[in-house]
Simulated scan of single mutants.
Amino acid sequence: MIFDCDGTLVDSMPAHFEAWCEALSIYGAGGVFKEDVFIAMGGRPTRDIVVDLNSEYDLKLNPEAVALAKREAFLKRMGSVCLIREVADFARSLQGKVPMAIATGGSRHVIEKTLKAVGISDWFDEVVTAEDVAEGKPAPDVFLRAAKLMGVDPARCLALEDAPAGILAAQRAGMQVVAIPSPLASLDA
């Protein structure tokens, strides 16, 4: 069983969007990242998104600098993140019964702090981040690495994911996928 973290297991997307807005404003690009684009790019590594924003808006943002500013802005908002109860209850019910991992487009530092903040850092056998693989989502790398570390054939894995890039990544890894509706997307409904 492989879980995405942000937007799937943890309701952190509003804090991530606010952090993006703050980081981009610091570098003179406030307002370029609209919420619908943010949702569509969910699950992808921050640096990759900055590269895309540079291309789309003819910007020259430093991906590393923006990623660091975004990380710091998110960490200031850590108190607003919480578990997505239904997914967390499902994960809790599987503890000790099946191997479980996190496969995320986030950085290890932020994901470890997030899991600790919501009290579930000890639930998972493995945590694979964008920093642990050559290519982030939508490439299948994080899911394939998580399966390998758990010793489970990817075809026998079930992935829970909210973002289009993550769903595609899990499918590319040959896994069955359960698409989790994003709490942020449900606010528009």
Score class of each variant (00 low, 15 high):
Ser12Thr: 04
Gln176Trp: 00
Val50His: 05
Phe3Ser: 12
Val177Phe: 03
Val110His: 00
Ala73Cys: 04
Ile180Leu: 04
Ser107Gln: 10
Val128His: 07
Glu131Leu: 11
Met78Ser: 04
Met41Trp: 15
Val66Pro: 12
Phe124Arg: 00
Thr114Pro: 03
Phe90Pro: 00
Leu75Cys: 12
Asn62Trp: 01
Phe124Leu: 06
Pro164His: 05
Gly43Ile: 12
Ala134Ser: 13
Asp52Gly: 14
Ile26Thr: 14
Gly119Ala: 12
Gly42His: 05
Phe17Thr: 04
Ser93Thr: 13
Asp141Phe: 14
Asp6Val: 11
Val50Tyr: 09
Gly106Cys: 06
Tyr57Ile: 00
Asp52Asn: 10
Lys34Tyr: 09
Thr46Asn: 13
Thr114Leu: 04
Ala173Tyr: 01
Asp153Met: 10
Tyr57Phe: 15
Cys157Gln: 08
Phe33Lys: 05
Ala173Ile: 08
Leu61Trp: 00
Asp125His: 10
Glu22Lys: 15
Arg85His: 13
Glu126His: 08
Gly30Asn: 10
Glu18Pro: 03
Asp6Met: 13
Ala173Met: 05
Val133Tyr: 09
Gly28Ser: 09
Ile120Cys: 13
Ala130His: 09
Met1Asn: 02
Tyr27Leu: 09
Ala88Lys: 09
Ile26Ser: 06
Leu24Ile: 02
Arg44His: 13
Thr114Ser: 02
Pro45Lys: 14
Val152Phe: 07
Ser25Asp: 14
Met150Trp: 10
Asp188Val: 07
Ala134Arg: 15
Lys76Ser: 11
Lys70Ile: 06
Leu53Thr: 05
Lys34Thr: 11
Asp11Glu: 09
Glu64Cys: 12
Gln95Asn: 02
Cys21Ala: 15
Tyr57Pro: 11
Leu187Ala: 06
Gln176Ile: 02
Asp153His: 14
Glu161Val: 02
Phe74Met: 04
Gln95Asp: 05
Gly31Cys: 09
Pro63Ser: 10
Glu86Asp: 12
Leu61Asp: 04
Ala139Glu: 10
Gly166Glu: 01
Ala189Val: 14
Cys157Lys: 04
Pro181Asn: 03
Met78Pro: 00
Met78Ile: 13
Ser121Ile: 03
Asp58Leu: 14
Trp123Tyr: 08
Ala163Cys: 13
Val66Thr: 15
Pro138Ala: 12
Pro183Met: 00
Gly119Glu: 10
Glu135Ile: 08
Gly136Ser: 11
Glu56His: 14
Ser12Ile: 05
Ala67Pro: 02
Leu59Asp: 00
Asp4Ile: 15
Ala101Val: 06
Ala15Glu: 13
Asn62Arg: 07
Val110Leu: 07
Gln176Ser: 00
Gln171Trp: 05
Arg156Ile: 01
Arg71Ile: 03
Val110Cys: 08
Met13Leu: 15
Arg71Ala: 10
Pro164Met: 08
Asp36Ala: 10
Val50Arg: 04
Ala155Ser: 02
Leu68His: 07
Ser12Tyr: 03
Asp89Thr: 01
Phe124Gln: 00
Lys70His: 03
Val133Leu: 08
Ala130Thr: 08
Ile26Tyr: 10
Ile2Leu: 14
Ala40His: 04
Asp153Ala: 13
Ala146Arg: 01
Leu187Val: 06
Ala40Thr: 08
Leu144Met: 01
Ala185Asn: 05
Glu161Thr: 02
Lys137Cys: 11
Ala163Glu: 09
Met78Arg: 07
Ile26Glu: 13
Leu75Lys: 15
Pro154Lys: 05
